[in-house]
Simulated assay, not measured.
Amino acid sequence: MLKSLAATLVFASGLAVSAPALAAPNDYSKDENWLCRPGRKDACAVDQSTTIVAANGDLMREDFKADPKAPIDCFYVYPTVSTDPGGNSDMVIDHAERRVVEQQLARFGAKCRLFAPMYRQITLEALRSNMMGKPIPMDPQLGFNDVRDAWADYLKRDNGGRGVVLIGHSQGARVLQGLLRDEAAMTPAKGRIVSALILGMNTPVGADKTFASLPPCTAASQTGCYVSYVSFREVAPPPANSRFGRATEPGMTAACVNPAALGGGSAPLKAYLTNGSTTAPNVWVKPEKKIDTPFVAVPGLLTGTCVEKDGASYLSVKVNADPADPRTDVLTGDVIANGKVLDDWGLHLIDVNLTMGNLVEIVGAQGAAWGHKGHH
């Protein structure tokens, strides 16, 4: 997943693309066009168990259980992961799509019913071809049209007046931004948007910080608001050439809403990091103890703060390293090319993992607030 998520940045750069012939719309009333839907053993029905590594080195297992009776829904658009040939992906569910859902969506199942459509996104091959100066035909509008059609199908068949959280990362977040700006698509959902989690993508805002009529979330119980950020290490802020953390629209800044401190300031990040992957340290604790869960939590190791500096706005991630304790002081997740860390990419690979616990808590509080307000 390292290379696939890293390549998403090319999509963010706004490279010129050429559109192939118009493709027929997908039929989202067919369940096979969805990665996740409620009540199925599908891509979201995956193990989310976690080993919590305390600062003293003690281990504790945290089991996970989805809530089939969750009061609200979550509608998710995944980032660039497709390994399909050609400029746009097909609609066949592959390992790459399953993997990213495991990382970025399944844990929300504790607080909301999960809906995740497949869509004909821009592929890794198309992005790499652009990077090499040999672009192949690709159509970013096709993926957007698919998500818009899936959204319309969800509203028609499944919503039933329920509140819904919109979640997207990187290419998925950009598609989500377009959806939120599409008046025709959003009018049928008027009053039902619990929140929008627009992650790992610059969300352009003015002085009032509003995006698509949504204000930033400032409290966990607030509804009808958004959370958005891009993440960088405290010791490696966005360089001048960084495309993340800087809005390209004149007079706008990139929004930063810290999921760990919605009212502002610094707070611990409740990260769920992947065990046994290219974005995991070799050893979580010394002396080494066997950890066999797919996720690891390291409470107190990471702190997040929204920073505005030198024209950039971003979530600054501090590693609270303590050489005296047995736990790792390593946070991996940088984008590396030819052995060199690319500072302008930040911690894009783990944007969502970094704050997953905070985000799930927010969605849970929003779901409860939604119910208390008399929505149903």
Rank of each mutant, 00 (worst) to 15 (best):
A365W: 10
G304R: 02
Y28H: 09
T303I: 12
L197F: 14
V227S: 12
N353Q: 14
G160Q: 12
P137K: 05
D139Y: 00
A21I: 02
P281V: 01
Y119I: 09
T332E: 11
N241Y: 09
A312K: 15
K373L: 13
E97L: 09
D182M: 14
C36R: 00
V319A: 09
T83L: 14
S170P: 06
W34R: 10
K111R: 12
V53L: 11
P250T: 10
Y76E: 13
P281Q: 11
A247Q: 08
V257M: 12
S18T: 15
K156A: 05
N33G: 02
T218S: 13
F144P: 00
G14E: 05
L155Y: 03
P140D: 05
K373P: 00
T278F: 08
F144D: 03
I72N: 03
L273W: 03
A212E: 10
V164Q: 08
V53G: 12
A19S: 07
V230Q: 07
V335K: 07
D292H: 01
V360G: 04
W151L: 15
R148G: 08
A55R: 13
F108W: 00
C225E: 05
P238F: 01
E97Y: 06
T248D: 12
G346P: 10
A66G: 13
S18E: 13
A312Y: 09
F144R: 01
T332G: 11
E183I: 14
W284N: 07
H375S: 09
A368N: 13
V352W: 06
G265D: 04
G178L: 07
R128Y: 11
Y76R: 08
E288H: 07
P117I: 08
H348D: 08
A369I: 07
N258D: 06
V46N: 08
S316R: 05
D343I: 03
A207I: 12
N241Q: 08
G333N: 04
V227A: 08
E234I: 00
T303C: 08
L354V: 14
D31H: 00
L155P: 00
M252V: 10
Q222C: 01
P287M: 03
E102T: 12
V46D: 08
K289Q: 15
E308G: 03
Y78G: 11
N353S: 05
T83A: 15
S195K: 00
P216R: 03
P135D: 06
G206N: 00
V147K: 11
A324I: 01
F64R: 04
S242M: 10
Y229S: 06
R246M: 05
V165S: 02
E183M: 03
D146Q: 04
T51L: 01
G374I: 00
I52R: 15
K289A: 01
A150T: 14
F64G: 13
G367Y: 00
A12D: 14
M132W: 02
W284A: 00
L35G: 02
L179Y: 09
S13L: 15
K30Y: 00
V330C: 03
V147R: 07
Q222D: 12
T203P: 11
G346H: 15
S242K: 09
V205E: 04
K309D: 07
F295G: 06
P239V: 01
Q141V: 13
L124R: 04
T51Q: 09
G168L: 11
S231H: 10
K290H: 02
Y229G: 11
